[in-house]
Nucleic acid binder design. Sequence first.
DNA 1: TCGGTCACTCTCATTTAGAGAACATCTCGA
DNA 2: TCGAGATGTTCTCTAAATGAGAGTGACCGA
Lengths: 250, 250
Amino acid sequence: MNEQDFLAAYDPRAYPAVAVTVDVVALTIRDGAAHLLLIRRGEQPHAGLWALPGGFVRPDEDLVAAARRELAEETGLDGEPLRRVHVEQLASYGAPDRDPRMRIVSIAHLAFAPDLPDATAGTDADEAVWVPVAELTNRQLAFDHGQIVADGLERARAKLEYTPLATRFLAPEFTIGELRAVYETVWGHQLHAGNFHRKVLSVPGFVESTGASTERGGTRGGPRARLYRAGDARLLHPALLRPAREETVR
Amino acid sequence: MNEQDFLAAYDPRAYPAVAVTVDVVALTIRDGAAHLLLIRRGEQPHAGLWALPGGFVRPDEDLVAAARRELAEETGLDGEPLRRVHVEQLASYGAPDRDPRMRIVSIAHLAFAPDLPDATAGTDADEAVWVPVAELTNRQLAFDHGQIVADGLERARAKLEYTPLATRFLAPEFTIGELRAVYETVWGHQLHAGNFHRKVLSVPGFVESTGASTERGGTRGGPRARLYRAGDARLLHPALLRPAREETVR
DNA sequence: TCGGTCACTCTCATTTAGAGAACATCTCGA
DNA sequence: TCGAGATGTTCTCTAAATGAGAGTGACCGA
């Protein structure tokens, strides 16, 4: 322990300043494809690259509150629609050189939002755009945001297995088919409609019936579907497991 | 946005300083009971209370590296034994009032260690003690460390379901019975020995046989058991699921 | 030497998941 | 208006995984 470390043990101000930010991996599903909220950076470093929405945590603000505030500022969301967005902490990123300006530790958050109307111009939501996740492959993101997004997507896939959070991508009332589409989009492969139906209805507290049905059948035909809303379960038991993915296991 | 916020958007130093620390929830299993590494605080605030080992992140140090360093300092571990300890990020805690002195954001980490000899006196590992987790109920920990420990224990229980990390609580070679004891301790209930045995051997990459057996039977009788070491799987598939816990689901 | 413990294997019943199909209802275009 | 095709929902059959119980034999300590 050198002298600086020794002093710092008593007074962290003996170290160079550290800044704490939040970044948000906000996901939604639009036109059957996963979309991610991104901002085009206007300034150095990484000017012109896409980056996650985020910013400094304010002195009187909890971490999740900061993430919600950033999300609200960038999307123009507020009130009930904002309340319907699920936000949770994802992980923290603090490699010493992740930002060339200074030591910045970012507390990344993960958000699941229903398909929202685009932020109206004139609000703070200047540059935020919902970008299809599929377009991100090989596209460079600012800082370590590529890694953060990858971690967020993997977390999202896992969360759908054992939580009912898939419903957060949908309107308050939804059909089993719409719910299945969420799973297929996030997991990236087709599911057996009949088995999915059976499973969803068999997991206690996942969905509850509204008694109503859709006004019309699907755009390409088919009968009207029954409408459900999210149930009171916070965890799915037994979980909906993804098929084995041998490659990721080892 | 007030003027301070406005300035801070460009220069975080316009805000009061924020400090970043790491705290470590280090778990081990000793005498068939889960133990947690704690330190008795010598100074205010919370002098005399038990607290998690932790400290400030140094300028050139990654977050996990800081956690490993703190763990090493407090346990006196080093080299190969330290390398066998599993350390992963748990979550970040940043409520504005969690430390009365200043705004401190703590990146909590979770560590799984094999049963280690107690830190020898004379090292830096002054005050760190392995405390049985069972003794913690109702005992007050410093700051929000009670919540951090609770989150860490829940994460540990979940991790044993879908990762082979239970092996990190054991020596490099272990018997199925010892592995089962880890699960029983962390999950807090008995498992069916025969079914557990079948399951562990059927999950690809969980354990691999050494070909050897223990020198002697168990202390209370029974045959010599075959020895295994950890396999190459990073995820267990299919997972070892805990029995349903109805109460935690809703 | 004996009772008891434990590793390991096996059987059987139950539950859960995978696959395919039946059937009714609906949309859309011919 | 009619028919093709799509979809929601339910069912059947099979395979796989799990829970529970028991048997066998090695081993310890008394």
